[in-house]
């Protein structure tokens, strides 16, 4: 059986992913990768612990890999391989489109929510175009109850397109509710329904 795995993308300066041979889950897979399109292959050992993969019942969880982004040609779309013979595991491009997201605009307030299951937490960014330095205090409400609060100050590169310094991101915890979710800007009381 071929190796299984995934190239997740760029996070904190490293291109990350995971790979494992389901028939030899105790062995650590060697992942081969291009640093430039069609260039010489380099290797990295997939032996980092990945709780998310482990929770899916895959191996012992020690199957993650990370390659510093400085090794890659930033203009290239590079490929990752694994197994004998080598088979493509996934591709990665530094010029990938921004993550799929929904954008809500109310007056000068801009709220961008990444499309991911609410059970995995809500991430995105929020800002007031007319007052970029005033970070937004967000309330996450489920069926009328406040379940989490956070001021949107995390770094989100994609928020730079709206001006400012990019420090407008948020990462709200997972919630059980599948409906009745809303985010409220605490300063203005503006509510955005997420259903």
């Amino acid at each position: 059986m071929a190796h299984i795995g995934h190239v997740d993308g760029l996070s904190r300066g490293q291109v990350r992913g995971w790979a494992i041979d389901p028939e030899a889950p105790g062995d650590r897979a060697v992942v081969h990768f291009e640093t430039a399109r069609g260039g010489k292959l380099r290797r990295v050992l997939a032996d980092r612990y990945r709780a998310d993969v482990h929770k899916q019942g895959i191996g012992d969880g020690y199957c993650g890999f990370a390659v510093p982004a400085k090794h890659f040609d930033p203009s290239a779309r590079v490929r990752f391989f694994c197994g004998h013979p080598l088979r493509e595991l996934g591709r990665f491009s530094f010029r990938a489109a921004a993550p799929k997201a929904a954008t809500f605009k109310t007056g000068s307030l801009v709220l961008r929510i990444d499309r991911r299951p609410a059970a995995a937490g809500l991430t995105g960014w929020a800002l007031n175009r007319q007052d970029l330095e005033h970070r937004r205090r967000l309330l996450l409400c489920a069926n009328g109850h406040i379940v989490a609060t956070q001021t949107a100050t995390l770094f989100r590169e994609d928020s730079l397109s709206e001006g400012g310094d990019g420090l407008h991101g948020f990462s709200l915890p997972p919630v059980d509710a599948s409906s009745g979710l809303a985010i409220v800007d605490a300063s203005t009381g503006t509510a955005i329904d997420l259903d």
């Binding site: 650590r28 032996d47 980092r48 012992d60 969880g61 020690y62």
Partner: peptide, 17 residues
């Protein structure tokens, strides 16, 4: 083997090192 042990984690979280 790990027997009934939960996953073993370390500060580095790399199996080889």
């Amino acid at each position: 083997g790990s027997g009934a042990l939960p996953p073993l984690l370390t500060a580095q979280n790399r199996a080889t090192a």
